[in-house]
Design a protein around this nucleic acid. Structure first.
Ligand SMILES: [Mn+2]
Ligand SMILES: [Mn+2]
Ligand SMILES: [Zn+2]
Ligand SMILES: [Zn+2]
Lengths: 150, 150
DNA sequence: TAAAGTATTGGAAATGATTTTCATTATCAG
DNA sequence: CTGATAATGAAAATCATTTCCAATACTTTA
């Protein structure tokens, strides 16, 4: 039997069907090394199966977000970007954004130190604000080497 | 002589004039207790001075962002929200977002622990990715008490 | 001070991402 | 198979943001 990706069960449990357009969108996200926009995904999907519509891409992304399989974020570009959520129980990852060229670096080598720190903060917030914390996002903004010159 | 707000010098140094529309936008941001959209700001500004145009609000926000006086963020609502940056040298603040009702809580009681931790991480990123880090944003997502019921 | 140059403004139109509508097609339970 | 439901795609509608352009306000120069 073949190894199923981590999100497979989640999709099935939700009652949604794993249709071809959905498979294609997921495959595009899986193999992406950048953070794609809906249109990026549409263009690639369209190459694999020209009948796919942009609307379906949006709808698929919406579904996957609701299921916690895809994460959406906006960086002030006027359009959203999407990426597959890290496998649950894994490390998670954060982001470094260059304010000049808008390059985004995924930063996944989280130290134990950091993991411990984050859970401590989450604990504190939970107590203080009575919030059930499910996730966090950390973004660091700066200027990359190229954009600072030599 | 009157106490100037911390951003006053920054605006002046940039060569930009502190015009009435700009003063109004800044005053609205200063007295806001939520994170406003451009239209929110426009509606309030329009009340104080009906001649102000939405375009000017956008342009003013753009200027203030460039000067580091205002921070913009998007939360997947399809529109941006803005807030005045914390006074430099101050504590900074983070955010708690309820995924159900979209309520946002400003969380500013940062511990020394957290400050120290963040500067350590920034240091590490600087070395590892050769990035000059200027700022960071930490968002925690969860569900507020009201949205969990009883 | 008057003229000229530059910065700022506001309204209208354009843009572009996302959502909605609606008719068609694929899939599933009985 | 038959009827019910889920999923799809194209076109139209929305809506935040940007662009254009002509009018004003302010500053500098002569
Ligand atoms: Mn990422
Ligand atoms: Mn805030
Ligand atoms: Zn860069
Ligand atoms: Zn809530």
């Amino acid at each position: 039997m073949k190894e199923q990706p981590w999100w497979y069960g989640r999709l099935k449990d939700s009652g949604a069907r794993l249709t071809e357009p959905r498979e294609i969108v997921l495959e595009i996200l899986r193999s992406a090394r950048e953070h794609l926009t809906a249109t990026d995904i549409y263009i690639q999907a369209h190459r694999m199966k020209p009948s796919i519509g942009l609307t379906t891409v949006y709808r698929t992304l919406e579904l996957l977000i609701k299921l916690g399989i895809v994460q959406k974020f906006e960086l002030g570009e006027g359009k959203a970007r999407f990426e597959l959520v890290d496998k649950p129980g894994g490390e998670g990852h954060h982001h470094l954004v260059c304010l000049k060229c808008r390059k985004i670096i995924d930063y996944s080598d989280i130290t134990n130190d950091e993991k411990e720190f984050l859970s401590r903060v989450e604990d504190r917030l939970k107590r203080k604000y009575d919030f059930k914390i499910l996730d966090h996002l950390m973004w660091f903004y700066g200027v990359c080497r190229e954009c600072r010159g030599s």
